[in-house]
């Protein structure tokens, strides 16, 4: 464990807490993409299957349980409890266009052609594009609530910090995993224009408005 990975995990944790708070406090999931949340639930359930078979540490297991449970809770809040506030009209990104290529890629490029490893690879590739429906929805609605932009910022920051973690591990532990690194870079790059808007607008107290 290193400071970059810990900061990344905490940023990820914070993002999910912000999202849950936003939905719970405002009793609304307006502006949130349910499709992205479905993809995230798929990411965590396919990645953390080794939760019971491969004990790493208490921290690792607790975080895995947290990510799986909160992603499922978010879907429940969005599609059941606050279903009336879910914005169907703007959450229209075709997730089939993501799932199919990611599945094919997971079957073609992986470290080991075993079920657990292929599912882990699928999860890594899927996570890199899972935010697209959300970013697409923000671009369609043209703006996002400030709390939602904080959620997106923390979520984007987490994998950006992981990149520093991978640099650190390469130099100090000689460890690297190209699949995770390439997917992590792609994932972070997808946030770039949002990061720019967040820093230039939200930090200054303005609302997140996408150029029309």
């Amino acid at each position: 464990m290193n400071v970059f990975r810990l900061a990344g995990d905490l940023s990820h944790l914070l993002a999910i807490i912000i999202l849950l708070l936003k939905i719970w406090k405002t009793r609304s999931c307006a502006g949130i993409s349910g499709r992205s949340q479905i993809l995230f639930a798929l990411v965590y359930t396919t990645r953390y299957l080794d939760l019971f078979t491969n004990f790493i540490s208490l921290y690792n297991s607790v975080m895995k349980v947290f990510f799986i449970s909160t992603s499922c809770a978010t879907i429940y809040l969005m599609y059941v409890k606050f279903k009336a506030t879910y914005d169907h009209n703007h959450d229209t990104f075709r997730i089939g266009f993501l799932l199919i290529p990611v599945t094919i890629l997971g079957l073609l490029i992986n470290h080991d052609f075993t079920p657990l490893e292929v599912l882990w690879t699928f999860s890594i590739y899927l996570e890199s594009v899972a935010i697209l429906p959300q970013l697409f929805m923000v671009s369609k609605t043209g703006d996002a609530e400030t709390i939602t932009s904080h959620y997106l910022f923390c979520l984007g920051l987490y994998r950006a910090l992981y990149i520093f973690n991978w640099i650190y591990r390469y130099y100090f532990e000689g460890f690297y995993d190209l699949i995770a690194i390439v997917a992590g870079v792609v994932q972070t790059v997808l946030y770039c224009d949002f990061f720019y808007l967040y820093v230039t607008r939200v930090i200054k107290g303005k609302a997140l408005k996408l150029p029309a």
Binding site: R5, H12, S57, N60, M63, K64, Y162
Partner: peptide, 10 residues
């Protein structure tokens, strides 16, 4: 393939 990559990252 190379040594089994320990999946210790989240």
């Amino acid at each position: 393939n190379e040594k089994k990559l320990k999946k210790d990252e989240l």
